[in-house]
Amino acid sequence: MFEFVLLCVAGFAAGVLNAVAGGGTFLSLPALIYVGVPPVSANATATLIALPGYLSSAWGFRDDMQAEGSLGLREILLVAALGSIIGALLLIVTPGETFLWVVPWLLLLATILFASGPYLLAAVRRRGLGDAGPVLSAGAILAVSIYGGYFNGGLGIMLLATFGLIGYRNLHGMNGLKNVLAVVLSLISALAFIAAGLIVWDLALGMAVSAALGGYVGARMSRRIVRTDLLRHFVTGVGATMALAFFLT
């Protein structure tokens, strides 16, 4: 019962964080590994768990999304779908021992990207890189989508930074599109993981329901949060702590 409650709380908190600031995988992945799920299966299950939360938070931002940049939404979705397939296949062929070695480095990379996200976005806009053409835009989306198909951690801030690169300016609209792409990435990756038999279903279902509720709550909360910097510091601290814990195990 303790493990069930722990996983449901982790799923809800991950849904909230993914909607508001990102970084939900910093909670869901370690929670699954803590209760004994093998690393590759834990990562695959965490990807599936995040899907309902992304979907509900995307619905919460549905009125804010609008087309910007040099790529249309259809082109962005197609490129993201291709990248997620490549990333998922890379995870499926990764041995468990190798992935367990890679996890702390991925968590550390995601934490650094998350912590530097506002500065990265500001640098992109300050240098006038928002007029990227369709080729550069597609390449950036593809690279981030491969990462997201392989490992969900830090995906949100990487997508936001990429949107800034390809010409997006409306932050709420960027958040909405971020969650739409996260839905596509998570769905395609999850289908590949299901086909490979990597999902731990008895744990995934309860966490997925909790993540969906957390995603919707987080989307509604986001407009009321004044000190998002404090939330970002908290998530960064969680990510750094989890990375350190994996390095020491």
Rank of each mutant, 00 (worst) to 15 (best):
N179T: 11
A161H: 03
L181A: 01
G133A: 07
Y119M: 14
F114A: 02
L187W: 07
I194S: 02
V183I: 14
I166Y: 00
I141P: 08
G139E: 04
A140C: 14
Y216G: 01
L191G: 10
G167E: 07
R125S: 08
V209L: 12
G139C: 02
Y168K: 06
N175H: 05
I194A: 04
L181Y: 00
A204D: 00
L177F: 06
G149D: 10
D202Y: 11
G167F: 05
N179H: 10
A195V: 13
G197N: 10
L191V: 14
R126A: 15
G153W: 06
A122S: 15
L198G: 07
L159N: 08
A115D: 00
G176A: 09
M174W: 06
G133S: 07
L165G: 04
F193C: 07
I194N: 01
A204F: 05
A190Q: 07
A196I: 08
L205R: 01
L171V: 15
L120F: 10
V180H: 04
G130H: 04
G197I: 12
L177N: 02
I141D: 04
G130N: 01
G128T: 13
V124Q: 03
V144T: 09
V209G: 02
L187Q: 08
D202Q: 14
A143Q: 00
Y119S: 11
L181D: 02
I166M: 00
N170F: 14
G153L: 05
T162P: 02
S210Y: 03
M158Y: 09
P118T: 08
G197P: 11
S116W: 08
L213Y: 03
I157D: 03
A115W: 02
A182M: 14
R126Y: 15
L181T: 00
V183P: 07
G215F: 01
L191C: 10
M174C: 05
N170L: 14
G133I: 00
M174S: 02
L203H: 05
A208S: 12
Y216I: 11
Y147R: 03
V144A: 06
L136M: 11
D131H: 04
A138D: 06
D202C: 09
A211M: 09
D131W: 08
S116I: 10
S116H: 11
A138F: 06
K178W: 06
K178P: 12
G197H: 10
P118E: 09
Y168M: 13
M174F: 09
G154K: 01
G215Y: 01
I141R: 02
D131T: 01
V200S: 11
G214F: 06
A140E: 07
L165M: 12
V144Q: 01
L171H: 15
G130K: 03
F193V: 10
A115V: 12
G215Q: 06
S186F: 12
V200G: 08
K178R: 10
F114Q: 04
G173I: 05
L185I: 13
L136D: 04
S137M: 06
L185F: 08
